[in-house]
Design a protein around this nucleic acid. Sequence first.
DNA 1: TAGGCCATCTGGTCCT
DNA 2: AGGACCAGATGGCCTA
Length: 384
Amino acid sequence: MALPSDVPTIWPGIIAELPRSAAMLTRLFSDPSLLPEVQKYSGWMDDSESEDSKTKDDDQEHCPLGDDDLDDGDLRGSSRAHSEIAGEDEEEDEIEEEDGGDEAEGDRPKKRGPKKRKMTQARMERSKVRRQKANARERTRMHDLNSALDNLRKVVPCYSKTQKLSKIETLRLAKNYIWALSEILRNGKRPDVVSYVQTLCKGLSQPTTNLVAGCLQLNSRNFLTEQCQEGGRFNGPNPSFSMHPYPYQCSRLSGSQCQSGSNSHSIRNHAYCSGYDSVYTGGGSPEYNSPEYEGPLSPPVCINGNFSLKQQESVSPAAEKSYHYSMHYPALPSSRPAGSHNLVFGSSGVRGGVHSENVLPYHDMHLHHERAPVYEELNAFFHN
DNA sequence: TAGGCCATCTGGTCCT
DNA sequence: AGGACCAGATGGCCTA
């Protein structure tokens, strides 16, 4: 941007005015009662030259006026604010500065740029109302976004009321989940449980990885224990292997449930307690009518059936106790020997099952076994 | 106390 | 013109 031709002329005047201007600004910004003066000179403040050496933080730091007292946007002299104001009708003649000569007029340097309008009290009020309305809309928008994120949290593989996934982790896990399901459909075969968990946890933070992996492992252990109790063996027909190893199991693991596989019956008793269709009927927060299951619903993603499958193939029930999982992300070696499920949650190096650090904080951890849009397809596939 | 996460405010941009 | 969307800034809260 070319400098105006009058710069050489006014430059000495600007420099000479700096000390006095600084003192005036300090006084103006430190005394709310001088707001009209601030308004009067706001256009001058807007001058890019006087702003060059000032950061936004400096502006805010030196301006003690709160949002309720003053519209920052106007003080900061955004062109947007002025352009909005420009549309107001009754003050068309209130151009702050008239075209004048090149010389600095009086004590003030000439202002360049678009014409600024005086910030009358009425204009200030309108601007403030406009800003407040915009803020309210923005709040509503963000609340809607958060509601959508909450709904997403409820349909990703692991859910905890108290230990909510962060927004970014929710999105990552959802992406991984979609990817994992897509891979299952595309490949048309049972996924390797390790790679499945690996896919789910890809790019997740270590705590989230622990949460997800711990969640899946818990369900696995419950399932395995129940299998042991009921059938005394792991082989034979494997109706549990699918994306819903327990039919529509919507277990909500309490701490005690997490610790004992014998509770898996009670967990399963929650099956069929609520229908998926009841979740997404209005687009808003779902209502859960079942007194037995007050948690949210999620798709059938538990892979305990997968674990079951692995047990059938290579792990004896006795070995299940030492069945541990390593979950080093992002570097879980792909060349790991087959059958060696060395998943360790986190850097603690805990082995041999669920470490309390990984599980206990999530007493209301949910394992998700509800219907999902992909359920029918998956179900059909796995039961063919 | 540093860092992560979040809500909110704010100004800019684009669209209707 | 007004609303939606976005990104930056800021401050509060929580946790390791």
